Simulated assay, not measured.
Amino acid sequence: MSERNSGTELDVGWILKVNVNQPAVLRRADQIQTRRTVKKEWQAAWLLRAVTCIDLTTLSGDDTPSNIHRLCYKAKQPIRDDLLQRLNVKDLGITTGAVCVYPARVHDAVCALKEAGCSIPVASVATGFPAGQTPLKTRLEEVRLAVEDGASEIDIVINRTLVLTGQWEALYKEICQFRKACGDVHMKAILATGELGSFTNVYRASLVAMMAGSDFIKTSTGKESVNATYPVALVMVRAIRDFYWKLYKVGLQTSGGGSAVPRKLSCGSLIIGGVGDEWLNSDLFRLW
Rank of each mutant, 00 (worst) to 15 (best):
183 G>S: 12
184 D>Q: 13
123 A>E: 08
154 I>T: 06
172 Y>L: 02
152 S>N: 03
173 K>G: 02
173 K>F: 06
157 V>G: 01
155 D>Q: 14
183 G>H: 13
112 A>G: 05
146 A>V: 13
109 A>I: 09
161 T>D: 13
151 A>H: 03
152 S>M: 07
126 A>W: 09
186 H>D: 11
141 E>N: 14
114 K>Q: 11
180 K>E: 12
121 P>G: 09
112 A>Y: 10
178 F>L: 04
113 L>S: 06
143 V>G: 00
135 P>Y: 08
184 D>I: 11
122 V>I: 10
154 I>K: 07
145 L>M: 15
156 I>E: 00
129 F>P: 07
131 A>Q: 14
162 L>I: 04
143 V>Q: 03
181 A>D: 05
179 R>H: 06
138 T>E: 15
176 C>R: 05
166 G>T: 01
159 N>G: 05
157 V>K: 02
170 A>M: 08
152 S>H: 07
148 E>T: 10
156 I>G: 05
178 F>Y: 08
105 R>K: 15
151 A>R: 04
110 V>P: 01
146 A>R: 10
135 P>F: 13
178 F>N: 00
155 D>C: 15
104 A>I: 07
166 G>Q: 04
156 I>P: 02
158 I>G: 03
131 A>I: 14
114 K>P: 08
103 P>I: 14
117 G>V: 09
112 A>N: 04
177 Q>N: 04
111 C>G: 00
159 N>S: 12
180 K>W: 09
183 G>D: 13
178 F>I: 00
124 S>K: 11
181 A>T: 01
166 G>C: 02
122 V>S: 01
149 D>S: 14
151 A>I: 06
154 I>P: 01
167 Q>N: 08
181 A>L: 09
185 V>E: 09
143 V>W: 10
108 D>L: 05
188 K>N: 07
185 V>H: 08
188 K>W: 11
147 V>G: 00
110 V>E: 06
161 T>G: 11
153 E>A: 13
158 I>V: 11
183 G>Q: 13
175 I>V: 12
140 L>P: 02
137 K>Q: 15
170 A>Y: 03
104 A>C: 09
155 D>A: 15
184 D>G: 09
153 E>W: 11
182 C>D: 04
164 L>G: 02
156 I>M: 12
162 L>E: 01
157 V>D: 06
117 G>W: 07
157 V>S: 06
127 T>Q: 08
126 A>M: 12
116 A>S: 00
127 T>N: 09
110 V>G: 02
176 C>G: 03
123 A>R: 06
158 I>E: 03
161 T>W: 11
139 R>A: 14
154 I>D: 09
186 H>E: 13
